[in-house]
Design a protein around this nucleic acid. Structure first.
Lengths: 357, 357
DNA sequence: TCCCGAAGTTCGATTTAAATG
DNA sequence: GCATTTAAATCGAACTTCGGG
C-alpha cells in the first residue's frame, strides 16, 4: 500500500503532473473522471493514475471545497447528549451519512441558548451542507428557528413536530403510542391505572395523552383524576427519573389502589419502579409498569421494562435521507421541499407488565 | 443583529474593502488583529469593522484553511457508539473541544476494520489537526496503529493501554478498580464470592483481575476456581449482558453456594442480576452484585447497581487536552510528547450490595 | 469537426514586499 | 526611517478557453 508520506509534505496535483509528464489540467480531469475524460486515451489515464498512486496523492479538500463550494459535511446538533435517547438516533444518522460519504460534525447544545447560537455560527462558517437537529428537549423558541431558516440549509428536526415548508421534521406518532400503551394494560385486565403525564411544555406530552384518552374512551376505562399526575418542566433527562420516583411516592401515599402505572417515558418508569419497589409493591407482581421510548437500559434492568419503542435508529436514518435529498435539490437548483414524517411506534412487551390475576 | 444575508450570496473580504474604502489587505490585517495592525490608526479600524459588521461579513473557512493549512477540527473515532460507555466520554470530548473552539468530526467504526480504514482516510483528507480514539472494544491490531502513527497527527487513545511515544493514552486504573470491588464485598462480610472475568482479548481484563487477586491475597480470601467464569470474546456490548446471564445460570446450577458476585462490568452485572432474580436469588438479599464502569443504567435500575466508576467525562476531557497540547506543539514545531494517563476509579456504593447477615 | 492536451483564470483569504507621504 | 496602506504572490484544485493535429 504505497500511501501518504506521513511527514508533513503534501503532494499536489502539480507533482503528479510533473511525475506523469502531463499538465495538471489533464491530471485533474482524469482523477475526477470529469466529462472531458472521455477523450483521454487509456494509456494516458493509466500513466496518470500510476503516478498519483506512487506519490500517494490526496487532493486537498480545502482547495477543492473553495472551488466547488461544497464541504461534504453535515452538522448534527443535539440538545443533550446525556439523554440515553440520543445514542441510537446518532447511530442512524452516522450510518446513513457514511453511506453517502458525508461526515458529521457533532455539536451538543447542553440545552443552553448561548451554546446553540455559538455552535450554529460555527457550523454555518464551516459551510455545512445540511443540518440534523435532535431536539429532544428543545426549549422551543421561534427566534432560534428563524435564525436557522434564513440560513437556507436543508434541515431536519427530530422529535420536534412542526409544520411549514422551511424545515423538515421526523417524529414518532405519539398518539398511536399512547393508545398502544394503555391498550396493552387494558388487555392484561388492568382497570385501576395510575398515569404520569409528560410536562406541559414538551410537545410530545399532549398527543401522547390524547392517545391515552382515546383508548380509555373506546374501552370504557375510567380515568381517575386522583391517579393522574404530571411531570414538572425540566431540561434534565435525569430529572424525569427523580420526578417519576417522587410522583409515584405521592401516588402511593394516597392509598387509592391501582394495579398498573403508565409512565410518560422510560426514565419516568424507572423512577416509578424504584418508588414502587421501595414501598413493597413489587413489579410486576403488585403493579405493572409501562414506559415509552425503549431506551437501552429498558432491556437491561430487571424486570425488563415493557415499553412503547420509538424507532430511533430509523428516525435518524430518515432525517438524514431527507436532508440529503434537500442537498441534492440545492445542487440542482430545485426547490427544497420539506417532509414531515410521523413514524409508527412499536409495543415491546417485556417483564414489567403482567396479567391481572 | 445584522447578520448573514441568508441567501446564497456571500460577502467577501473584497466587498468589505470596497465598502470601507480600504484594500482587502488592510481589512484582513484589521479583522484578524494581525501584528501589522499596530500601525493602523483606530479610525481606520473602526471604519473597517463597521463595514464588516454592516455587511455581515464572515470569512470563508475554506480559503482560510487553504492558506493557513489549519482546519480547527479534531477527529473523534468511536468503535461502537451503541456502547453505553461512550455517552459520557463523548460529552467530555465535545465540551473540551468547544471551549477551545474546535469542532469534532464524529465517526463510528462499528467494530469493522474496513470502516476504520475508510474513516481514517476521510479524516486525514479533511486535515484533522488531532484525533481522539475511543477504543472500548478495539480489536487491537498493530497495522491499524502503524497506519495511524505515520500520519503524525497528535492522537490519544481512550481505554486502550499502550506504551510508546507516538500516541497518548488515557485509561482507568483497572488494577485499583478490581481491588476496590473485591475489597468492598469483603468489607461487607462476603467470603464465598463468584467472579465473572473479562474476555481474554480485552486489555482491561487482566489488570482488573490482578487487582482482584491482590485484594484476595491481602485479605486471605479464598478464590474458588469453580466460582470463576470468563466472558467469551465478542465485539458486541450487548453480548456481555447475555453472556453474563448465561454464565450466572451455569454458576447457579453448580449448587456451590456464593453470597456475592463480582462482574467484569456493568453490562455483565445486569445479566447476572437477571439470572439471579430468575432463579429466585433476590439481589441484594440473597446475593450481592457489583459491576464496573458506572454506566447510566446503573443508577436507574432497581436495585441500583453498586459499581466501580470510571471517570468517563474526565477521561474524554483529558484525552482532548493532551491532543490540544499536541496540536500546539506541532504549530510551534516542537516535538509532540505522548502522555499516558491512568485515572483513578471510584467505588460507588448503591443498593445491589449488602452486608452479609 | 473530432480528439488530446495545456495555459490561464478563478475560488477567498493571508502575507510578503513594496510604495506612498 | 517611520507610519500607513496596498499591489501582487500564494495556497491547491477545477474549469474555461484555446491551439495543434
Amino acid at each position: 500500500m504505497p500511501h501518504s508520506k506521513g511527514n508533513g509534505s503534501m503532494v499536489t496535483i502539480r507533482d503528479v503532473a510533473k511525475a506523469s509528464g502531463f499538465s495538471s489540467t489533464t491530471v485533474s480531469i482524469v482523477l475526477n473522471d470529469a466529462p472531458l475524460a472521455r477523450y483521454i486515451p487509456p494509456v494516458t489515464k493509466k500513466r496518470i493514475e500510476r503516478a498519483a498512486e506512487k506519490l500517494g496523492y490526496r487532493p486537498n479538500q480545502f482547495a477543492r471545497s473553495l472551488r466547488s463550494k461544497r464541504s461534504h459535511t453535515v452538522g448534527v446538533m443535539v440538545f443533550d447528549m446525556t439523554d440515553p435517547y440520543c445514542t441510537l438516533v446518532l447511530r442512524g444518522i452516522e450510518n446513513t451519512l457514511y453511506q453517502a460519504s458525508y461526515l458529521p460534525i457533532l455539536t451538543d447544545v447542553h440545552n443552553e441558548r448561548s451554546r446553540f447560537e455559538g455552535y450554529l455560527e460555527m457550523l454555518l462558517d464551516r459551510r455545512i451542507e445540511g443540518l440534523v437537529v435532535l431536539a429532544n428537549w428543545l426549549f422551543l423558541d421561534i427566534n432560534l428557528l428563524a435564525d436557522l431558516e434564513k440560513s437556507s440549509i436543508p434541515t431536519a428536526l427530530i422529535d420536534c413536530e412542526l409544520k411549514g415548508d422551511s424545515m423538515s421534521s421526523v417524529i414518532v406518532d405519539n398518539e398511536l403510542g399512547g393508545y398502544a400503551a394503555l391498550d396493552h394494560l387494558h388487555s392484561l385486565g388492568h382497570r385501576k391505572i395510575a398515569f404520569i403525564r409528560g410536562p406541559k411544555t414538551l410537545a410530545d406530552s399532549s398527543p401522547r395523552w390524547r392517545g391515552v384518552r382515546n383508548c380509555a374512551k373506546i374501552h370504557g376505562i375510567e380515568l381517575n383524576s386522583h391517579l393522574i399526575v404530571e411531570l414538572p418542566d425540566s431540561r434534565d433527562p435525569l430529572s424525569s427519573f427523580e420526578a417519576g420516583q417522587k410522583l409515584t411516592e405521592t401516588l402511593i401515599k394516597q392509598e387509592l389502589p391501582f394495579t398498573a402505572l403508565l409512565a410518560f417515558d422510560d426514565m419516568t418508569a424507572f423512577g416509578a419502579i424504584r418508588a414502587l419497589t421501595n414501598a413493597g409493591m413489587r413489579v410486576p407482581e403488585k403493579c405493572s409498569v409501562i414506559g415509552f421510548d425503549d431506551v437501552a437500559a429498558s432491556a437491561l434492568c430487571t424486570p425488563a421494562l415493557t415499553t412503547v419503542r420509538q424507532p430511533m435508529e430509523a428516525m435518524g436514518t430518515d432525517a438524514v435521507r431527507i436532508v440529503l435529498e434537500g442537498i441534492q435539490s440545492v445542487l440542482e437548483k430545485r426547490e427544497v421541499i420539506a417532509h414531515h414524517r410521523k413514524m409508527a411506534p412499536e409495543l415491546v412487551v417485556r417483564d414489567s407488565t403482567r396479567r391481572l390475576m
